[in-house]
């Protein structure tokens, strides 16, 4: 069965249309609108990445932002290094470096995956969080990486938001398609088995170690690519790119949309932004506090998020929403 035949179902068709509509946004030539959707797409891509690990394998990757930060620094370091070598602005689009950000994040994931994925449950969450803190501290203190001041890139490239928007849109679509495909191949079934009961999965012939490492590496690629786009869009990268805020945001978006579904991260990012807009207007400094409460309410009462709740309560939607 080809990928094309697999995609002839309501969820992928709806999402392909949604991405096509979003591609029209920059035509409005409204910088504010572009900026708004750039932030939204950035969160969406991160949520797709997080969902591959948390939603597919059940491992709570709490320090997931480390891949995003590494992607950003990869882009930043490449732009400054090349820029200094040619003593001026880059002669090619710096966004061509984005895939390298993803690859560096994947390489880092490959290095830490084997030891870290042996740890289960809450201890895994703590371990990933610690890895993120350790990496952040390194970038904070090593002068080559710009230290606390970070890396300003404006000497070597100009600020261009529209290409950043399209790169994030393309990677968002790719992350959705990858999620959708992964759940339909051997890897997806192995991961679902791990999510449900890892010990049983092993006695059923699932190479659990390999599968966990594979999904960790794939997920890191998308987070890294997103981080690279973000750094180039901001023309700046600093240790705040490993900050905790986005870690919380992507968890909220994932939970709102529906953990483990392929539609969830897309919907979740939109709901998150809608709620955030409402809250920020009234409580500019406290909106994150409310998101703590929202996480608790979702986990207690709607553990499946919007997609999960719809699938559960409207039986006809089970085959449509994936």
């Amino acid at each position: 069965m080809t990928l094309l035949a697999l995609c002839a179902r309501p969820t992928p068709i709806a999402l392909l249309l949604a991405f096509a509509v979003m591609a029209l946004i920059p035509l409005a030539r409204n910088p504010e609108l572009n900026g708004y959707f750039l932030t939204l797409l950035d969160l969406m891509l991160l949520t797709y990445s997080l969902n591959m690990v948390v939603g597919f394998s059940g491992y709570l990757s709490f320090g997931h932002i480390v891949f995003w930060g590494l992607g950003g620094y990869t882009a930043g370091m490449l732009v400054t290094t090349i820029g200094r070598a040619i003593a001026g602005e880059l002669t090619f689009s710096p966004y061509l470096l984005v895939p390298l950000g993803g690859l560096v994040a994947s390489a880092f994931a490959a290095v830490i995956a084997y030891p870290i994925l042996r740890i289960r449950g809450a201890y895994f969450a703590i371990a990933t969080f610690s890895v993120n803190l350790a990496v952040q501290t390194i970038f904070f203190n090593v002068p080559v990486f710009g230290g606390a001041e970070g890396l300003p890139l404006k000497r070597f490239m100009s600020y261009q938001i529209v290409p950043a928007f399209y790169w994030l849109l393309a990677f968002g679509l790719l992350a959705f398609l990858s999620s959708y495909l992964i759940l339909r191949i051997k890897l997806g079934y192995g991961l679902l088995a791990i999510l449900n009961d890892e010990d049983v999965a092993q006695t059923m012939g699932v190479n659990t170690t390999l599968y966990k490492i594979l999904i960790y590496i794939i997920a890191a690629f998308f987070a890294g690519a997103g981080g690279a786009v973000w750094a180039l869009a901001q023309v700046f990268v600093d240790p705040e790119n490993f900050g905790i805020t986005r870690s919380i945001e992507m968890f909220v978006a994932m939970l709102l949309g529906g953990v483990g579904t392929t539609l969830g991260p897309f919907i979740g990012a939109f709901i998150y932004f809608a709620i955030k807009d409402l809250l920020i207007i009234r409580f500019p400094h406290l909106h994150l506090v409310f998101f703590g409460g929202i996480i608790m309410i979702i986990v207690l009462f709607v553990p499946g998020g919007l997609v999960g709740a719809l699938r559960q309560h409207v039986p006809g939607l089970r085959r449509i929403l994936e």
């Binding site: 079934y189 192995g190 088995a193 012939g205 699932v206």
Partner: peptide, 8 residues
Amino acid sequence: MVGAIFGT
């Protein structure tokens, strides 16, 4: 299906 996919 998991049984069959990871079968012998």
